[in-house]
Design a protein around this nucleic acid. Structure first.
Lengths: 331, 331
DNA sequence: ATGAAAGCGCTAACAG
DNA sequence: CTGTTAGCGCTTTCAT
């Protein structure tokens, strides 16, 4: 593998000049610069990243730690982050924490060890995980979920309000027993969706009862069990608010198995406007979240913080939008 | 940020001993090792990755360059790669080439610059992109798509056979005019699916006509246009083979808009067993690809090649499985 | 504008 | 078993 010295020898200059030329420093004679670039090309020179980062004490890389690569909501965030980061010459490495605090901590450690310029994460674990980043002065931004007790930049969706509106919509459609299937206790978005659901019940002077609420992992299988469980009760819900699209899959399966007709016997609203949401029978009413935008904003905030670590922390809240389809319309 | 010297000073040993202790080398006194670990803990020491990699001339990282993060097929591959890599202490960085040869080349360059131990990629671009890896002696494995002219390790699905079987199934169900919507020319999986489709027509002594075939990007929007186009012809297909699940979304939308009933007016088989495939109306018959397994096998091959670069190249072909549902059953 | 030389933090010879 | 020391490849003073 050729090094700066090889390039320097071939171009007949010093390594310092090679470095300057290749990094586009203005203080180098154009002719020399051209000679250097040609020599580098001929040798197929590729700079040694670790050496460069060691010297510079920082890499033009941001780490994006998301809680589930298989969830389209998070991959959309990833796209937003990538597009913004690439614009300014940063690379993005995607890490999948899989909703595990342990893996999240591991990836945070790796990010620190690799001396990345910054980290964007949707926290699965306790705030203590990111405290390491703060302690080391590595810039970071939380996305989708806040970090209790940390005054970091955060980009959120107003998910509580969205849940409230979605529930209010079900109530307005005449459903009597609106239930809710949401994510695990302690995951902020799951808590907020439940809180919004309760807000709406309260506003409509309905009693909220634990019998109509189920909490489980943010996945299809958990929601499937939860739905079967809800349906096997004496008092079954006639509508459901579902906290994400993976869960919606599990719920729809459960309804099918039990011969319950979605949209007729049970009204449905689910978070996330999956590409297939309009194609199932009946088409799903959804709360569309601005996932791409979330990622893009987070990336811009991170870059700003990298540039100026003393910037005051900000909280950005984006709105979600209810898209009505047949699954929430009573027949 | 504390360094080995700081730890060494605190533990009262040399930096070499610190390095040895922290890397679990057996040649260090257990007592000393314990003292070193404690000192490291107390200081919150995190090794400097770039420095380590510079010295070691290699990082325990593999890059996974996939052509579309938003495609569940590829994220499933990613899961397979991650699980295997993590078992042996490697980290995985995910790069999204977005079906762009340009981005792919860029990520390959970055992988080389960062001196990753190996690269797994689903090639979007020409074989010349990976030639760089070969030239530098970086281990790599192609997944899902072969690299023409490169004798590298490859992990594939027997997609041509799967397409043939899927098409034969449609013919056996009594459909007369089976069409095909597949990916771009030059993308190997897209070519193979078309070839398998033609194989089946030939075997059934049907004439294959360009009028029933459309090629477009592997996305919903392209397939949507393609389907509308097919439906607006004089001779419309009464069945379709669709090359992936994103495309299926576009096709189903098109059918809805035209008031064509899927499964009744037009039989459907699509590649990829998306979680929602059984939930649409009618449930989709699919060709389920072993995506996770694909990733896991690719990772194992890569690790083997990293360990022994002289290993002969292998080609692994996994089978896909037709899952019959109502969308391909004539009423 | 260019070169010489130091040094980022770590690991691996080599000595002891 | 432990310490001393060199050097990975790069960028960046400092000097010219």
């Amino acid at each position: 593998m050729p090094t700066v010295s090889d390039v320097a020898a071939r171009a007949g200059v010093s390594t310092a000049t090679v470095s300057r030329a290749l990094n586009g420093k203005p203080t180098v004679d154009p002719d020399l610069a051209a000679r250097v670039r040609q020599a580098a090309d001929e040798l197929g020179y590729q700079p040694n990243g670790p050496a460069r980062n060691l010297r510079r004490q920082e890499a033009a890389v941001v780490a994006l730690i998301i809680s589930d690569v298989e969830n389209p909501f998070f991959t959309a965030i990833a796209r937003g982050v990538e597009d913004v980061a690439h614009e300014v010459g940063y690379s993005v490495v995607l890490c999948n924490s899989d909703e595990s605090a342990e893996k999240e901590r591991r990836y945070v450690d790796i990010a620190i060890q690799e001396r990345v310029a910054g980290v964007i994460l949707s926290p699965s674990g306790p705030a203590s995980t990111v405290a390491k980043l703060a302690a080391r002065g590595t810039a970071y931004v939380a996305v989708d979920r806040p970090l209790p007790g940390q005054d970091s930049d955060v980009v959120l969706v107003d998910t509580r309000l969205a849940a409230r509106e979605a529930t209010a919509h079900l109530i307005a459609q005449g459903y009597e027993q609106v239930g809710c299937i949401t994510g695990p206790v302690g995951v902020r978005t799951a808590d907020d969706r439940l809180a919004g659901y309760r807000d709406a019940l309260k506003a409509a002077r309905r009693r909220s009862t634990p019998k109509l609420v189920r909490r489980t992992e943010y996945k299809s299988a958990g929601a499937h069990r939860a739905a079967l469980d809800l349906l096997s009760q004496a008092e079954t819900p006639d509508a459901l608010l579902i906290a994400n699209s993976a869960m919606a899959v599990g719920v729809l399966q459960a309804l099918q198995e039990r011969g319950v007709r979605a949209g007729r016997d049970v009204g449905l609203v689910t978070f996330d406007d999956a590409p297939w949401a309009a194609l199932v029978d009946p088409p799903l009413t959804v709360v569309a979240q601005p996932a791409y935008e979330l990622g893009a904003v987070a990336a811009r905030l991170l870059l700003a913080r990298i540039a100026d670590p003393t910037r005051p922390a900000t909280t950005t809240t984006l709105a979600a939008r209810l898209t009505e389809r047949a699954s929430s319309h009573r027949h």
